[in-house]
Amino acid sequence: MGHTEAQSINSQSRKQAIKNGAVAGFPIFLGYMPISIAYGVLAQRSGLTIFETTMMSLLVFAGAAQFMATNMIAQGAAAIQIVIATFVLNFRHFVMSMSFINRIRSFTMRWKFGLSLGLTDETFAVSSLHGEEAKKNYGRYFYLSLILVAYFSWVFGSFIGAIIGDTLPRALSESMGIALYAMFIGLLVPSVKKQWRLGLIAGSSMLLNVLLVEWVQLEQGWSIVLATVFGSLLGIPLLKEEDV
């Protein structure tokens, strides 16, 4: 690759980086909206105030754990039980963060720290599929903007859900449950089309996850962590350095 060509690919203004990040984050914005509203509604029903409901989204920013916590609060679980269950369920973000931080190695510590706090399943997946941004000028603003768009949607949706309460038609809110799964599929399929080996990795991790949940009867949090760690081991023989 010629010197000038490399430069033109890597050069983007900060404004462009922010705009591109927001565009990449928009599907997450759409996917989070109905789910965070549903969370807000459920939290209300479990007896949380509007303030508590919104604070949980603001401070925790982890969908599955928040649904679980509101359920546990409704059932009168002890705080320590809820905190431990949250740790187990969210530990997968540790594995994801290892992968993400590795990609943004060149960023300053301040940026690594800040961006890592915004990692969810969704922001991680979309960021990883835009790994090339890490090498561009202002790439950090791309990730920041992507994460903030998702964060805003999550917090704002929770607040809306807490205010409107149970007014969403049930059939509609039930169908929205597929949104994030569809997003994961929509992210995975184009990569697999380019590199069938990636499909092999995803497929074996699915299989592992089923085995761990059904046969070993592992908690969902741990089974996702283990399936991810061991499924991705296949990448060592299968992938080339420049593949992804």
Binding site: M206, V210, V213, I224
Partner: peptide
């Protein structure tokens, strides 16, 4: 960073997507 470690870390997003999709999607 050894090359094999790099490949492992690069495979994590795809393994994570797999585990996040299935079997969870059946519980919609």
């Amino acid at each position: 960073l050894r090359p094999w470690l790099n490949r492992w870390l690069n495979a994590i997003p795809f393994a994570a997507l797999g585990a996040l999709i299935f079997p969870g999607i059946m519980t919609v």
